[in-house]
Simulated assay, not measured.
Amino acid sequence: MREKLIIAMQHNQIIDIMYIAKDDAITKRRIKLIKISGNTVQAYCFTLHAKRTFTIDNVLAVYPVISKASGLNA
């Protein structure tokens, strides 16, 4: 999972993660990575509107956020 997070950070991507919180609840967070250090990730969490630290071992999945192109009509 660490490799996926590093790649997302290198590409300056906003990502969605599935994460096991401290209370063992599984949550979905939309984040922008700031720093990877050891076994933690510092990121801005759009869900909570605050900077948060996530434990890499608790990240279950990483999904890039793909924005739809505006102004296109089918």
Rank of each mutant, 00 (worst) to 15 (best):
1 M>N: 07
2 R>Y: 15
3 E>T: 12
6 I>E: 13
7 I>E: 13
7 I>N: 08
8 A>P: 00
8 A>L: 05
8 A>I: 02
9 M>S: 10
10 Q>C: 08
10 Q>Y: 12
11 H>F: 15
13 Q>N: 07
14 I>L: 03
14 I>H: 02
16 D>T: 09
20 I>Q: 13
21 A>V: 03
23 D>V: 03
23 D>Y: 12
24 D>S: 15
24 D>P: 08
25 A>P: 05
28 K>E: 11
32 K>E: 14
32 K>V: 09
34 I>A: 10
36 I>D: 05
36 I>L: 15
38 G>Q: 02
39 N>L: 10
39 N>A: 15
40 T>C: 05
40 T>P: 02
41 V>N: 01
41 V>F: 02
41 V>C: 04
42 Q>V: 07
42 Q>P: 01
43 A>I: 01
44 Y>P: 00
44 Y>T: 01
49 H>Y: 08
50 A>Q: 14
50 A>D: 09
50 A>M: 14
51 K>P: 01
53 T>W: 08
53 T>D: 06
54 F>R: 01
55 T>N: 07
55 T>H: 08
56 I>N: 04
57 D>W: 14
57 D>A: 10
57 D>L: 12
59 V>E: 05
59 V>C: 09
61 A>I: 07
62 V>F: 04
63 Y>I: 07
63 Y>K: 10
64 P>D: 05
64 P>L: 05
64 P>C: 04
64 P>M: 06
66 I>T: 07
66 I>G: 00
67 S>C: 07
70 S>V: 14
70 S>D: 14
74 A>M: 15
